[in-house]
Design a protein around this nucleic acid. Structure first.
Length: 504
RNA sequence: GGCCCGCUAGCUCAAUUGGCAGAGCAACUGACUCUUAAUCAGUAGGUUCUCGGUUCGAUCCCGAGGCGGGUCACCA
């Protein structure tokens, strides 16, 4: 934001100076209000009847930001807003006397505290009949327009505080987000899970297919990465004897930004010993439907023109069969990357010269299957090629016990019966490293030697879950863009010096 | 990264074929003691995102760049 003193901020600075010149502290350290605004309104409504007018004489002190001013000379109405609500205040010259003059130095956007009695105006509006008021904070910049609000999406994201002030429904979405996250915590806590915090800065960025952010620790003189998943640390805790753990944490993936990708996002992961992907499936259904019902009053949630019904049980589809039905391709008939590349190209897919079988299947799924999964659906039994951390299916070579959950065409959860055979796990890591080399794909999962050591001590059979919380919040709150459920989505910096340097 | 769209007063938006850049809100001055998008009268406010080009003349046309949005690619 340019700091030039335009006319509007200048006028506010003049008023600020006048306030201090008159001995008024425009930024007093504290203010004691008798209640939030909503409580005062409710309290008044509960006693507001003609036969107990004496109660109405009880004085209240309320505080908030001035949202509008309607001045009629010797009387003015100011609407003030706090987090709980908005109330009108009436300022009258004959009541306030000389302090009425201070109103001249008050602007929309300033914070004030008012003391007076609650009453109704002739038009029935609940109003504080102000006996005295104090300035709590003088604003130097004008607020966005009161009627149209703030529409410029760039400013809404870059200066979210303005968005929150000007567009109250935006705040509701973030309140709901908080409730959803609390609902998840309650759900796991009630089931005996322990919430843990594992490292964000890690020596090996493993546990998912993604490129990491790189950083450096000076004292250790060591390259570190920002985690791309919490998986391998949580499984170490299963080895260590936590039978039920979860982490609700931020992970970081160095990739593109669009409506459902932000470089940092909130990931829920849980691991439960002696569970498998079937029991995790049941848990996911129960959790999401419970949260939807608890917070939104129904398991049926409108999203993007659909009504998504999260009531269990969700549809369960076999991955191979579903892909065959949607695309006509039976992946079992194409056991290597060359043949699968050929058939995918024949279908008109944009396939690079060198793509691994796992990546090709992923591409087929996102083209033919995932967009059609509008109602909550589990896709079951993934090929081993794209699941290095999942346990093989006993009776189905080449497949693992894994599901992903989809709704509105978006992936919302990923789960498997965890691979706990250290020898097989080592082989899987090695083959991933080979894939990384052969296909020059630096997103392929990395080998974590310390994790291998841990499971060599023995890890019990375990069911694991990963769930993208931002996408879940999008679905439940009806927001089509991840930027509308992240308070501060990642944006390119505006730095004029930087830009001019780039030009050189 | 490709393609498409947008960027005009603090905010929301106009501007004819390329011909003096406007309105509402906000601000300022004045009137007004029950208004509520208060009202009424007046005033002020612009690097039209930036740089360059075409032209007598550019918000408008052309080129390069910046930022954002959409979309495809990439990516869970």
């Amino acid at each position: 934001m340019p700091d030039r003193d335009d006319e509007l901020t200048l006028s506010r600075k003049v008023k600020l100076k006048r306030l201090t010149d008159n001995g008024i502290d425009p930024y007093p350290p504290r203010y004691t209000r008798t209640s939030p605004i909503s409580d005062a309104i409710e309290n008044f409504e509960s006693i507001d009847s003609p036969d107990c007018t004496s109660q109405n004489e009880q004085s209240v002190s309320l505080s908030g930001r001035i949202m509008s001013i309607r001045s009629m000379g010797k009387a003015s109405f100011l609407d003030i807003r706090d987090a709980s609500g908005t109330i009108q205040t009436l300022m009258r010259q004959n009541v306030l006397e000389q302090s009425y003059e201070t109103l001249k130095d008050i602007d929309i956007g300033d914070f004030i505290g008012v003391t007076g009695t609650v009453m109704r105006t002739r038009t029935g509006q609940i109003t504080v009949d102000t006996k005295e008021f104090v300035v709590l904070s003088k604003g130097l910049r004008p607020l966005p327009e009161k009627w149209h609000g703030l529409r410029d999406v760039e400013i809404r994201y870059r200066q979210r505080y303005l968005d929150l002030i000007a567009n109250p429904q935006v705040k509701d979405t973030f309140v709901q987000r908080g409730k959803i996250i609390k609902g998840i915590r309650d759900f796991f806590d009630d089931r005996g899970f322990i919430e843990v915090d594992t490292p964000i800065m890690v020596p090996v960025a493993a546990g998912a297919h993604a490129r990491p952010f790189i950083t450096h620790h000076n004292a250790l003189d060591q390259q570190l990465y920002l985690r791309i998943a919490t998986e391998l640390y949580l499984k170490r805790l299963i080895v260590g004897g936590f039978d039920k753990v979860y982490e609700l944490g931020r992970v970081f993936r160095n990739e593109g930004i669009d409506q459902d990708h932000n470089p940092e996002f909130t990931l829920l992961e849980s691991y439960e010993a002696y569970a498998d992907y079937f029991s995790v499936m049941t848990m996911v259904e129960e959790m999401v439907s419970k949260i939807a019902t608890d917070i939104f009053g129904s398991a049926k949630i409108p999203f993007d023109g659909h009504i998504i019904d999260f009531s269990p049980p969700w549809a369960k589809l076999d991955l191979r069969e579903e892909l065959l039905a949607r695309s006509g391709i039976d992946i079992d008939e194409y056991p290597d990357d060359h043949s699968l590349t050929q058939v995918a190209r024949n279908k008109g897919l944009d396939v690079g010269p060198l793509e691994s079988r796992g990546r090709l299947i992923d591409k087929l799924l996102s083209t033919y299957v995932e967009p059609n999964l509008i109602q909550p659906t589990f896709l079951l039994d993934y090929p081993e090629d794209m699941s290095p951390l999942a346990k093989a299916k006993k009776d189905q070579p080449g497949y693992v016990e894994r599901f992903e959950a989809f709704a509105a065409g978006m992936e919302i959860a990923n789960s498997y019966t965890e691979l706990n055979d250290p020898v097989v796990q080592r082989e899987r890591f090695e083959s991933q490293e080979k894939i990384r080399d052969i296909y020059e794909d630096d997103e392929v999962d990395r080998k974590d030697e310390d994790f291998l050591t841990s499971i060599e001590y023995g890890m019990p059979p375990t069911g694991g879950l990963g769930m993208g919380i931002d996408r879940l919040v999008m679905l439940l709150t009806g927001q089509a863009s991840i930027r509308d459920i992240l308070l501060f989505p990642q944006m390119r910096s505006i730095n004029e010096q930087q830009n001019s340097e780039d030009l050189e």
